[in-house]
Design a binder for these strands. Sequence first.
DNA 1: AGCACGCCGACT
DNA 2: GTCGGCGTGCTC
Length: 805
Amino acid sequence: MAQIGQVLVDVPTMQTNDPYSYAIPAELEQQVQLGMRVTVPFGRGHRVVSGVVVGLSDGTNFDGQLKPIASVLDLAPVLNEELRQLADWLADQTYAFRITCIQTMLPNLLKAQTAREIKPTTELSPAEMAQYFPDGAPREFDTSKLDDKTMAGLLRLQRAGKVEVTYQVTSKATAKTVTGILPAQSIDELKAHQDAVVKRAPKQAKLLAYLQTLSPTTPVAQSRVSHDTGVSAAVITAAEAKGWLVKQPIEVYRDPFQRPVTPTAPLTLNTAQQTAVTAITQAIDEQQSQNFLVEGVTGSGKTEVYLQSIAVALDQGRTALMLVPEIALTPQMVNRVKARFGHRVAVLHSGLSKGEQYDEWRRIDRGEATVVVGARSAVFAPVKNLGIIIMDEEHESSYKQDENPRYHARDVALWRGRYHHCPVVLGSATPSLETRARASKGLYTRLLLAKRVNDHPLPTVHVVDMREALKQQGESDFSEPLLTAIQARLDRHEQVVLMLNRRGYSSFVMCRDCGFVLKCPNCDISLTLHMDTHTMKCHYCGHEEAIPHVCPNCHSRKIRYYGTGTQKVEQALQQLVPTARILRMDVDSTRRKGAHEKILRQFGQHEADILLGTQMIAKGLDFPDVTLVGVLNADTALGLPDFRASERTFQLLTQVSGRAGRADKPGEVYIQTFNPDHYAIELAKDQDYERFFVTEMHMRHQGNYPPYYFAVQVTASHEDEATAAKAMYQIVAAVKKGLSANAIVLGPTPKAIARVKRKYYYQVVIKYKHEPQLKSVLEQIRQAAQIPARHGLSVTIDPEPMNFM
DNA sequence: AGCACGCCGACT
DNA sequence: GTCGGCGTGCTC
């Protein structure tokens, strides 16, 4: 039996990034297992923290006095061998702390909370007691909630031994239970009681008869007993008091999708789909970690390929993991999978309550669910024996986490595919350049679904030159051709989807006399006008203030709104087409839980003619009566300082175009733009992904961007601009020393938005092809950043950032 | 992170 | 003289 446990303590610092050794006390020897969470004493004093056992051994390199593990938080390990290895790999790849990676991999509920409590000892005088403990009871000891004077006083008492601080580590993970019933006496005894009361108390007799039919070991839910016998809870409680039965809690799962689904059978595949399924099936059969790119336009039946591939894996007794972007994880989508695989499906996403997430996670962990559907973090689901991993819409940027650990779910999926010797299927109509380039190099097998199922024609796409529209009709968000097209749909009772490219797109306030623009006091950006709350808001830090009526700079009254927000567009549109019923979908109208779904349902039931919204309407919704899609501002994203601007624009336009005319009615798309000649817009008009890929690869080659180069972004931030800049210059100097002449160093430069939440941001981007030293240089920077972190300087390392420049 | 130790200025 | 400010090192 192992004497020593290697524990990663829940203290995210560089010094505790390696496990610490703890003695395993005899009484815990039977309990402690690899991958379990424990609590351990840490530091001087009586501080207790949680940690995870990542190793068991008989010896240790540490030559001090070992402390013992204090308690075990789990009955079963929460991290298996695979996930422990994955955590190490993830920490190494993303320059994040090991414990941070583990926290990310586990459901929220398993994150242990530490609470401190302060209580009086017998030494405390009555006067002090009255001052600090007016209730006479121990009080919560939270540094952030107590004022300085009370804090100082309590700390002085603590030094004098008059009060005592105790630590508690609590895991909120609780299984939901319902009351269960077990017969507590033999059938004969129960029968005797039944005979005795049958005349007098018919309900009791009924219950006694029922108890005789139950197994003495498997509890039955009390609600079930009531339902079956028609006996009330009071009678059951009375029976418990008489010793006829005992109550025992039964663990139940919180099922987030309890609505019944109608089962579906596999659909007949067309040739391209069949070829794809056959290729994937072969990889599953041969247990190969071969990876695929399924490239198919909207409506080409990718989902059916996924579902039938999953079925193959399940038939072989293996499991499946299917990742979809958060925004596409709608009940319709989930029901489609549940309809095929029923109760074997578990769903993981942030819309579930923490309890629901935990229950789904346990179902997966116990092997009760063998198909997992979920967004980014579901890539860490504790599925064993994976037979296939699918990542739909693989180009979606939401697969990259924008906080530590800055992982890309695609990389994790590929890692797990290698671990399980199973195929990873990446699917998209507009694959990311990285993925498509890897397919060209033969790293992924490319499976093309060129045709739409049922041979629906692709919509006709018109590009409207807004420079011309501006000359002819003056300033308006709606060009003449688009308006005409909208009016035609209204006359025919067909539906319209209008999309605003929200990036860099909002209404701000500017003074017409002096040009003053209202800015956020904390961040380096203009405040956005919100008509619903009648306030000016900062989209970065949440700062909010009143709408000015007088210019704060020159006191002119000519302060007006500029730009276009969805709300303003909605008003303008309503004036242009007064009879239209318009639904607006944006961050403001979907903030409430379920609002998103409600708007889509209303639109699907024809309660509105026009759906106006931001990017979120481009993803995955499918309404047969939508025959017109309009993009009001196709190019606002093109102007952003981002090397993926063209790629994003092309993907968005292609995707939103796919929303038009999916049924028997032909679709039309209008793209309004000030850059009609830009290749991203021209090629989106032609819906020519291949040419876009070739053109954009050429641009990336010219600019030395990914996928031709790897990239790492290092950011330093501080409240004082000079401090941030100075730190960045030192980092750049250190980096340059370790790099070859082939690496390209961009910076240091201030970030595009140089100030956010009162902090200034400086960055450097390193582009490289092969730099064996880079990793150790970055590790040194991480180490070195530990000391100035005390003074408010934070340094972050982002491998393969989603945008830079 | 959070606690102790240690070194400096301003008070009973 | 001491109390308490915060800057620094360390936690198996």
